[in-house]
Write a protein that binds this DNA or RNA. Structure first.
Lengths: 201, 201
DNA sequence: AACTATTTATCACAGGTGTGATAGTTTGGA
DNA sequence: TCCAAACTATCACACCTGTGATAAATAGTT
């Protein structure tokens, strides 16, 4: 049986093209023909590796979620245990910035994620992954804040998650079009407020 | 000249239908034919009052921005001057909740606004209005926080704007699917943190 | 070399889109 | 009454979409 190319590799190639289209045009711009063009494949090939449009979207969402999960796992909260002062602030900021649009690759991934989140409002295909991504992020944030002895971890984590979402939205859209520097400054101010409640007692 | 019906009224009727479609299906769901059906008019009539699809979207964006502006103006920041403690907290929360999805009409409007913001990333039609809405909100927030003697008004307003955006996103989407109560609690916690820096000095 | 499963490539069809063009209908004023 | 302006209603066209179906080319195995 001819398998000159790894099917999984081809699928990734297609998903990558889909991501580029999401960044350029939004999720509605992801059509089979455009994905085929963008990936340099024929639409017939795309349809051979994915069981139609719906399946492609599902796979792309899965991959987006997996990447965000990997980013969170990489900057694990373990190293935060017991840190205080500026060291704690720096470490926490580094963790949060792992999922924020601070450079081009992270910006592209953030765009894909936010597009997916918005789309999950009306497209059932994305509901589960959208919810899972929020849960993953919340878990990491709670763990991190807990390690830093921040009180009221649940509430603080929810606040931080909101700040992350809002800053991301205003950075990747013309709404407020935050610069990366400004975004990081606002984030830092918020983290400082959160840690201020931990530092003294 | 027959003008049995106020043209402006008809336009509002059409825009209202467009808003319902945005809520139900997202901005991509706003097609001339669907708007016509939803508004109970013929597509020919819709095209008589709007100079094509682009013009309809422009008018809808304008109306969405105007409504958000009116909501902000209604809960003007004037009344906040000099308030302290729980009274300040309550007043500030009431102002912020004017633009948040705490009930069905505000939820629908918030959905329209967030859809517009996301769409403004790739659709030039929405860029200006998206930016204006952020500026309007930021101005009101700065004014309010200033009246409450919150220090570092610019930074505090930016933080608050981020919280508003993030909470709205997580309330109108399955991402974290916040209940209204939870959203208000998280918002209150954040406002409390901001005001804590003002209360003592 | 022959065979076979994988992969690539096309067609065609039904459905939806914006829009140009064109009739038909209604209604207020002369 | 008649007319013209405003409104409503259709057609048709080109374009794009997902998808079922089918053919063609490829390459590893026997």
């Amino acid at each position: 049986m001819p398998a000159r190319i790894d099917p999984e590799e081809r699928r990734q190639q297609v998903i990558e093209a889909a991501f580029r289209l999401v960044v350029a045009e939004g999720i509605e711009g992801v059509s089979l023909r455009k994905v085929a063009d963008e990936s340099g494949l024929n639409i017939g090939s795309v349809r051979h590796y994915f069981d139609g449009h719906h399946d492609l979207l599902t796979a792309a969402a899965e991959e987006a979620g997996a990447r965000m999960g990997r980013r969170l796992a990489a900057h694990a909260a373990e190293g935060l245990r017991g840190l205080t002062g500026e060291a704690a602030l720096d470490a926490l900021q580094a963790l949060v910035e792992a999922v924020m649009p601070v450079d081009e690759p992270r910006r592209d991934e953030a765009i894909v994620v936010v597009e997916l989140i918005m789309a999950s409002r009306t497209m059932p295909v994305f509901r589960a992954m959208s919810a899972r991504m929020a849960a993953d992020l919340a878990a990491v944030l709670r763990e991190a804040l807990d390690f830093l002895d921040v009180p009221d971890v649940d509430l603080a984590a929810a606040q931080l998650a909101a700040v992350i979402g809002g800053l991301t939205l205003d950075t990747v859209t013309p709404h407020g079009d935050l610069s990366v520097e400004r975004m990081r400054a606002v984030l830092r101010a918020h983290l400082r407020m959160l840690l201020a409640k931990a530092c003294p007692g």
